[in-house]
């Protein structure tokens, strides 16, 4: 059998070499929001465990969630959730084999940002009105 010799082949360049585009930014954002949501599940679990632990623990959790920092985290978390959700919808379109045209890709990427910001603001307005 012929011996296989490893050849020092050029590697494909990484992120920093490319010009930023909407599609690339939204792709990176999808991964960043996904990672943020991953870490944030610790807070959801802590909140649920606090609710199960009794009124005192739940009161503390609610107070932390209601503080400025708590609300900032909640806002970023809700934005990440909605952004990741719209990014996922984009992936569903691509999974169907559609939406690969340059214009469509660009429109969907821009919609992901505009749509997620609008929806997050809408969710917060509804939450604050119902309070």
């Amino acid at each position: 059998m012929a011996e296989v010799k490893p050849v020092a082949r050029p590697l494909s360049p990484h992120l920093q070499i490319y010009r930023w585009s909407w599609t690339m930014a939204m792709s990176v954002a999808h991964r960043v929001t996904g990672s943020g949501l991953y870490l944030g599940t610790v807070l959801i679990a802590a909140w649920l465990v606090a609710a199960a632990s009794g009124p005192a623990a739940f009161g503390t959790a609610q107070a932390i969630a209601g503080s400025f920092l708590g609300r900032l985290v909640l806002f970023l978390y809700s934005f990440s959730l909605i952004h990741h959700m719209l990014g996922g919808l984009r992936h569903f379109v691509w999974d169907m084999g559609k939406g690969y045209e340059p214009e469509t890709r660009m429109k969907m990427a821009k919609f992901t940002l505009v749509g997620s910001v609008s929806l997050t603001v809408l969710v917060w307005i509804v939450a604050l009105v119902l309070r």
């Binding site: 599940t41 959801i44 679990a45 649920l48 465990v49 199960a52």
Partner: peptide
């Protein structure tokens, strides 16, 4: 771990 804690609480 996150899943177990949340399920336990619910």
């Amino acid at each position: 771990a996150v899943g177990a804690a949340s399920v336990y609480a619910v």
